[in-house]
Nucleic acid binder design. Structure first.
Lengths: 347, 347
DNA sequence: TATTAAGATTACAACGTTTTCGTAGCAAAA
DNA sequence: TTTTGCTACGAAAACGTTGTAATCTTAATA
């Protein structure tokens, strides 16, 4: 097992000092052409690469971005990560990903771990438990210590940092308006409890869309579910119970899974999608594309979101020391993707 | 922006030496009870945490595992990562994930980057391009430099390192035998070109299953597709062309997407799944669970795979210096998950 | 010949730790 | 009084870099 090549090793081998080697490799004019060539040739031959850890220690910079997200199995997060990855690479940053599993303690632990020198800044989507607890000390502490933080998706307004959000309200509005345009008037929504920001905003968009068409909001057509992640069966049951015998012609859901559950139940009940009931879902993922019928969705562009988040963070990391703090909140637009779960728009 | 607390700062503040602080915090018996208490109280109050980078440099260990995978959007990789994550956390290791995008150069680049001190070892699933190029110098170099490597899923036999594999042959065999047991005899397979190891092995399992039932293998019932990732439309077209007018009663596919495409086409053609044609797919993912009908699949247990890979790597990392090299290849068993795309087994 | 300037190289500190070794101070033993 | 042994602490090196300041050579100038 060969030891990794270091400046010291090269220096000893070529009988010069460490400084000379370092300077030669960085093309310093201080070093004579001769020596420089010799050293560079040697380094190349033995494939010398500077040790990142040593550089990080010296520069007090790691060029590493820490990502903290609740779950990686969600297709949406996966696309966001890809966006972050891209932008990071373009600017020569590394990326460390850690998972909170929606657990408050794990989120705090992960942050502390990464904050101890491993990363220069964070991109984070909060754990559900953190939102419920309403405890954000780990975030404010990191920020106080000069670690830039960018929040995305699951954010909280009070924290002073850059934020990237889907325009959930506008997106939901667009989706529901699409249902309205195709002629639906009795539109139900399957959403989450209000403490999940995105659920709240999407519900708001739903209401606004209805109002813009002069349709009265009917509380009986709103279903709020808890605990999206661990409940598949429970949620499905509640959805069935909710839909049973309801007189509706459209459903808007805040995620794919709810849409799929609803569609399956309707089919079981002998109703046709989209002819009897049309469906639009938030979050464009794999399911929507391959379900029968394919689902009309409000697409979130996670990749763009990731890119934007990374861009904001890198900006902060590379801004001059003395620049005044200033926080941006960026909104990523959504797009309506028409598929087979809705009818054509009526002229 | 407060500067992070260091031993030096504490030392100055309490008017003792750096060594004293370090020792006190590590509960060394050399330090008097008094001083120790005082220092620990101070450190706790100001939330001192040792700097990881400095520790890494000192110990020449980072306690970080590097993961290099082709794509994160694949549900399977996502579950593997979760497994690795779990095991890593249990042993106090960190995890860095990088993506190769199935690109050879990017894979090499990523490895070099991480090999320069950022990680103690690698868990890798090779990029498709790497397999095609048949160039593994980046791997052997890393291994030569004493970096343990664990390969999973997409592996290559010649490299001397630990490996974790799905038992693809056995899994496919089980899947196809299930079709046979339910009465199918004219079974097609939709697989990949042979340079993808897993495709090759699964095809082999298919053949063996048929033979074990005394069914003759018919080359016309084998479809080999290229380039799974970027071809959705193209693959779908080829699948349609392949199935058109074929007299079959069962299909085995090496991934979900192929199964879904096939099922959709069959339905279009007025054939019923599973009554006219039964379907079994490798890789149990989100699609299989929610497709109509739900798909019978050979589940890969990605999480287990990740755990095993991490376990092997950590073993290597923590083995005593002088232990002899010895490489393990672990096989992760597959499970058949019966759903609605196959009939009940005939007695 | 003595001085200076330039060119080429090296020494050293620093980043934040841990750890080995050394040494004050002091009490007990000789 | 001198020696020994212990306690409690500090100095310094090391990990691998980089950049500043110092030093050494050599050639040109006065």
């Amino acid at each position: 097992m060969k030891r990794k090549l270091t400046l010291k090793l090269i220096a000893k081998e070529l009988d010069v000092s460490i400084s000379t080697v370092s300077k030669a490799l960085r093309d310093s004019a201080e070093i004579s052409e001769d020596t420089r060539q010799k050293i560079k040739a040697f380094a190349k031959l033995y494939n010398y690469k500077p040790n990142n850890i040593a550089l990080s220690l010296k520069n007090r910079k790691t060029r590493t971005i820490g990502i903290i997200i609740p779950q990686i199995v969600h297709h949406f997060f996966t696309t966001v990560i890809r966006g972050i990855e891209q932008m990071a690479r373009e600017h020569n940053y590394n990326v460390i990903i850690t998972l909170s599993n929606n657990d408050f303690d794990k989120e705090v632990l992960n942050m502390e771990l990464l904050a101890n020198g491993s990363t220069d800044g964070f991109i984070i989507s909060l754990a559900k438990e953190t939102l419920q607890k309403d405890d954000f000390r780990h975030l404010t502490e990191a920020i106080d210590q000069g670690m830039p933080v960018v929040m995305f998706d699951r954010i909280v307004d009070e924290i002073p940092c850059d934020k990237v959000m889907i325009d959930d309200r506008e997106g939901a509005k667009m989706g529901v308006r699409h249902l309205l345009k195709t002629g639906c008037r009795k539109i139900a929504i399957i959403t989450t409890e209000d403490y999940v920001t995105v659920g709240k905003l999407r519900t708001k968009g739903y209401v606004e869309a209805l109002e813009s068409f002069g349709v009265k909001v009917n509380k009986d057509l709103i279903l709020r579910l808890d605990n999206i992640d661990h409940c598949e069966n429970e949620c499905t049951a509640k959805i069935k119970h909710f839909l049973k015998g309801k007189d509706i012609d459209g459903i808007f859901t805040v995620n794919e899974l709810f849409a799929v559950s609803a569609a399956k139940f309707l089919t079981e009940q002998g109703k046709k999608v989209p002819d009897d009931v049309s469906i639009v879902s938030f979050s464009d993922g794999e399911l929507s594309k391959h379900f029968i019928p394919t689902l009309t969705t409000v697409s979130q562009h996670g990749e763009l979101m990731g890119r934007k988040a990374a861009e904001l963070l890198i900006n902060k990391l590379e801004r001059p020391e003395d620049e005044i703090e200033e926080y941006t909140t960026a909104y990523i637009d959504t797009t309506l993707i028409e598929r087979d779960s809705t009818n054509k728009i009526k002229k």
